[in-house]
Design a protein around this nucleic acid. Sequence first.
DNA 1: ATTGCTACTTTGTAGTACAAAGTGCTTTTT
DNA 2: AAAAAGCACTTTGTACTACAAAGTAGCAAT
Lengths: 99, 99
Amino acid sequence: MKNPIEHLNKIFDNRVRLGVMSVLMVNEEINFNDLKQMMDVTDGNLASHLSTLEEHAYIRVHKGFIGRKTNTTYAITKAGEKAFKEHIEALENMIKGIR
Amino acid sequence: MKNPIEHLNKIFDNRVRLGVMSVLMVNEEINFNDLKQMMDVTDGNLASHLSTLEEHAYIRVHKGFIGRKTNTTYAITKAGEKAFKEHIEALENMIKGIR
DNA sequence: ATTGCTACTTTGTAGTACAAAGTGCTTTTT
DNA sequence: AAAAAGCACTTTGTACTACAAAGTAGCAAT
C-alpha cells in the first residue's frame, strides 16, 4: 500500500496559505485588504504568510496606488501555479483513493 | 467573495493526520507498523499524531494479538468519518472554485 | 543471556501560528 | 493646522507544534 501524502506540499499544509493560493488561482490579482477580510485573519498574520509564499516564489507582489492611496496587490507566479496544481492533484488522488 | 477555508478542519491541516484518516476511510482497520511504513514517519511521531486523533475521538484503538505478538490496530469512528468527510467536502469546494 | 520486536512515552529542540502593538507614510476629517 | 484614520506592513512575545532521538516494558526468538 502506498503513501497517500508523499506528494503533498508542506507549504500548503497551512490553511491561510492554502486559501491565498486558491484565491490567486482564480483572481489575476488581489489586494491586501480584500485578502484579509476574505480569510478573516489579522494583518500581521496575513503578512507573515504572504511573505512565506513570496520567499518560495509562489506569489509576486505589486505595490501600486488607487488614486493616491497605496494598494498592494498579490498575484500567483508560474512556479506557484505549478506547485499548487501539483498539490491539488495530490489531494485529488488522495481523495480518489477514498471513494 | 467568500472565505475558501472556513470549513476546513484544523486537525487535518497536518499531513500525517490527513494521511492516517484517508487510509482509515478505506481500511476497516490498520496496525501501527503498517501505518508507520506507509507514512514514512518515526514511531514517536506517528504515535503522537495518533493520540491527537484519538483525543478528538476521530479514531479508536484496539490492542490485540497476532498469535502471541501484540498488534495494535486503529479504526475510524463515526465522528471521525463525519469530520473527515466534511473536510474533504470543504477541500473539494475550494478546488471547484479554482476550476 | 542477549537480541529483537511492538507500541509506545519522554525529552528536547527548532519551527510555526498568531495576536497585539508599533511603524511610516499618506489621506481624510475637524 | 492638528487629529484621526487607513494601508501594509514589522516587531515582539507567547503558546503551540512537529519531529527526532532515546528510553521503556513486555514478550519472543536465538
